[in-house]
């Protein structure tokens, strides 16, 4: 059976990554969120396969290949993200971003897109009811502080649902 993939939510504007962290919020589409919640409820009761959920960092551009950062979801405000490894969506290293950001080379200048599997985090947020708030808070924490000159930007951060 063909898998259905749909956009679940996205942030509203591109973000710059510089310094020691960057934050953004992802608004979830109510209808898509409802379909996800229904699926997760059914998966819990009927042992059906739960939907998988992915965080997409779209059109990541910049001129520093050496940048690496961790991506956290819904870390409580004011707390150290390192103390919340269960909120860690994944780590991203921007190897190749410089070439992918050049418009007139072997790439079209769209940058790179990274996909992180956040199914387990979403499952926990669903169980705690936090997903009903309709927003996910994304925190990007560079391994080393990022200089403004690195011009790291992320075009859009989005969440996709894939039904099995």
């Amino acid at each position: 059976m063909a898998k259905t993939v749909e956009l679940l939510g996205a942030n509203t504007e591109s973000i710059r990554l510089s310094g020691t962290e960057a934050r953004t919020s992802i608004a979830l589409d109510p209808a898509a969120r409802s379909r996800l919640s229904t699926n997760l409820n059914e998966a819990a009761t009927r042992s059906a396969a739960p939907d998988r959920v992915f965080l997409n960092l779209e059109n990541v551009r910049g001129i520093s290949d050496a940048t690496a950062f961790n991506v956290y979801i819904n870390v409580p405000e004011g707390e150290n993200p390192a103390n919340h490894p269960d909120h860690l969506a994944g780590s991203v290293a921007l190897f190749g971003v410089r070439k992918a950001s050049a418009a007139d080379d072997k790439h079209a200048g769209d940058g790179l897109t990274y996909v992180l599997d956040i199914s387990s985090i979403i499952d926990r947020l669903h169980l705690s009811g936090a997903i009903d708030a309709g927003q996910l808070h994304v925190l990007l924490v560079p391994r080393n502080p990022v200089a403004t000159e690195a011009q790291i930007s992320i075009g859009r951060i989005s969440v996709f649902r894939q039904s099995n």
């Binding site: 956009l7 939510g9 996205a10 079209a108 200048g109 769209d110 075009g155 859009r156």
Partner: peptide, 15 residues
Amino acid sequence: WCLNRCHRRPQLAAF
């Protein structure tokens, strides 16, 4: 130059 821009897939606002 034009063909390269035909390959562009920009980020799109969702809302």
